Simulated assay, not measured.
Amino acid sequence: MIQEFSGKTVLVSGAARGQGAAHALRFAEAGASVVVSDLRDDLGEGVVEQIRMKGGQAVYQHLDVRDGGDWDTAVARAESVFGGLDILINNAGVVACEPVDTCTDDTWNNVMQTNAAGVFQGMRAAVPAMRRRGGGAIVNTASMMGLVGSWGYAAYIASKFAVVGLTKSAALTYAADNIRVNAVAPGCVDTPMLDEEKKIMATNPYWDFDEWVANQPISTIAQPEEVSELVLFLASGRARYCTGGVYPIDGGSTAG
């Protein structure tokens, strides 16, 4: 296998399971040194062990993406252990489905602090380190719900629209530093978060999950590894002319 990311260091948030774990494993396969970060320490250490068993390089770093100090520590760990930071994958997120009139302050604040402020904090911590490396690539995880509206999901949709805006602003701001910033906008992906969301949907009179999937242009669920391939492309030199883009990977759900 081509070691496309040999000599590169990547920091992946929310990497203990689901899409984040898939991204971390795939980057390691492609030769990157990986900082696996999450709140779920045991699961995160397990991802590191998987990478090392396959001959890759990785360390685990506890990270609450809502905490700027945690971000500074994670970036410093990447620099101290692997010599620098080249790639940031802002993947951590939470989901909630509550309309505006019933969304509590706690729900709103947690979703916005995790999904939107977490991306902001991550980029703020990573940019100086990438400048020290002469450039880098950032891939933020938005959502198809950062491109269209939906019943309920008030905080979640607001947070993902914020990720899209942050991505575009950062792309314009840091292009002169040779730092590219893009976002992926996944739809229905087979992860533990989807299992949580299906439970939420079951209580929502406006959503029928199976019917929704069946009505997509590509009427199936994506696997996390499929999202990883897009993420790796955007982080790679093959995407050198891509910045400020938001790339749906949603079975065509937002095409019409």
Rank of each mutant, 00 (worst) to 15 (best):
V75G: 05
V48M: 10
G69Q: 10
M53C: 11
A171D: 05
K168S: 06
V59E: 15
A76P: 06
V119C: 08
M145L: 14
L172P: 01
P99L: 08
G93N: 09
V148Q: 11
A155K: 03
R131C: 02
V36A: 06
I157R: 07
I157P: 03
A74C: 12
A116S: 08
G134I: 08
A158N: 07
V94D: 01
D70Q: 07
G55W: 13
G69T: 08
A171Q: 06
S37H: 04
G135S: 02
M123V: 08
G68H: 06
S80F: 09
A92K: 02
V34F: 05
A58Q: 12
A74I: 15
V36N: 04
D42I: 09
N90T: 12
D105N: 13
S37T: 08
D67C: 13
N91L: 13
V81K: 05
R77P: 06
R77K: 15
L85F: 02
V75E: 01
N90K: 05
V47F: 13
V127E: 04
A155S: 15
Y60H: 15
V59F: 12
R132A: 15
V75Y: 03
C97A: 15
G83P: 04
I157L: 11
S80Y: 10
L43P: 04
H62R: 14
I51C: 11
A76T: 11
R66G: 05
K160S: 03
A137D: 04
N109T: 13
D38Y: 06
V100C: 12
L166N: 01
V36Y: 05
L166C: 07
T73Y: 02
Y153L: 15
D38A: 10
R132N: 15
K160A: 05
L88D: 04
V148R: 09
V111Q: 04
M53D: 14
D41V: 15
